[in-house]
């Protein structure tokens, strides 16, 4: 089973104070640390698990600059066989443009399955996966929490809202967007990443893909990025842990819960 997995490098923003940049079009990125998007990490693991079970190759693809090769090496260290980085230059990308670039890159590759994360941790759009599927004319499913190949089909599990999953049968080749928790992504050592440097990493320039200007034109534009509007929010309880604990206990009792 040949699998392509599309991944993205995103800033780590938990417990970080984000600042809006001068143009108000994004965040100040200089002080941020970057990681593989969490959903994509699960997608890579799923691809590698399937390859270990059924053979074939895993190809990891990202769109980004040289720094983004870090996550390709990480995917290679996890077990991917080869990788592709598409250099976008100075172009502004939205989900639509990204899906066009990926579709053009992937179209001539051999694959039975394409995996992406459900969404990326930065723009939270959850868009590229099934756009790409439609570009390539593939069957697709979003928010997938289980996948088991069965001949020319796969039995998949999709997470719905409200504590419900849907099980269905889908024809391969297919594109699935992978939900966190589908597996337990393996640990990657620095040594492993170093060794993975021997594996294939191809760089393609977006200008060489032969996409039209219309394909490379964003359908949605960010006009402004801003901090959340001030709301009243929580009443903050300050003080040392002991006095905070006393106040918490008091609040709980006031609300009619006996503890």
């Amino acid at each position: 089973m040949n699998i392509i997995v599309c991944i993205k490098r995103v800033p780590l923003t938990q417990e970080v104070d984000l600042e809006v940049d001068e143009l108000k079009k994004g965040v100040k990125k200089d002080a941020l640390a970057y990681v593989i998007n969490d959903w994509d990490n699960y997608a890579v693991e799923e691809a590698v698990l399937l390859q270990e079970k059924f053979g074939g190759t895993v190809t990891a693809i990202t769109i980004g600059d040289e720094d983004d090769e870090e996550i390709l090496r990480r995917a290679l260290a996890m077990g991917a066989d080869k990788s592709i980085r598409i250099e976008p230059g100075e172009r502004e990308l939205d989900g639509f443009v990204i899906s066009k670039i990926l579709a053009k890159t992937i179209r001539d590759l051999e694959y039975d399955l394409i995996l992406t994360g459900v969404q990326a941790d930065d723009d939270n759009a959850a868009m590229v996966g099934t756009m790409l599927a439609e570009e390539l004319g593939l069957s697709h499913a979003a928010v997938v929490t289980g996948m088991e190949p069965e001949g020319s089909d796969a039995i998949i599990r999709v997470e719905l809202e409200g504590g419900m999953d849907e099980v269905s049968k889908i024809k391969l080749p297919s594109l699935l967007t992978i939900q966190t928790g589908i597996n337990e992504p393996r640990y990657v050592s620095i040594m492993g990443i170093r060794k993975a440097r021997k594996k294939e990493l191809v760089v393609i320039n977006v200008e060489d893909l032969g996409l039209s200007e219309d394909d490379l034109a964003q359908r949605t534009m960010i006009e402004e990025v801003f901090l959340p509007p001030e709301t009243e929010g929580a009443e903050m309880i300050e003080g040392d842990p002991s006095s905070v604990a006393s106040q918490i206990i008091q609040i709980i009792k006031e609300k009619g819960v006996s503890i």
Binding site: D121, E223, F226, P228
Partner: peptide, 10 residues
Amino acid sequence: IYSGKLFSKV
């Protein structure tokens, strides 16, 4: 965006 830490106008 960024899990609700920022908003964007599109």
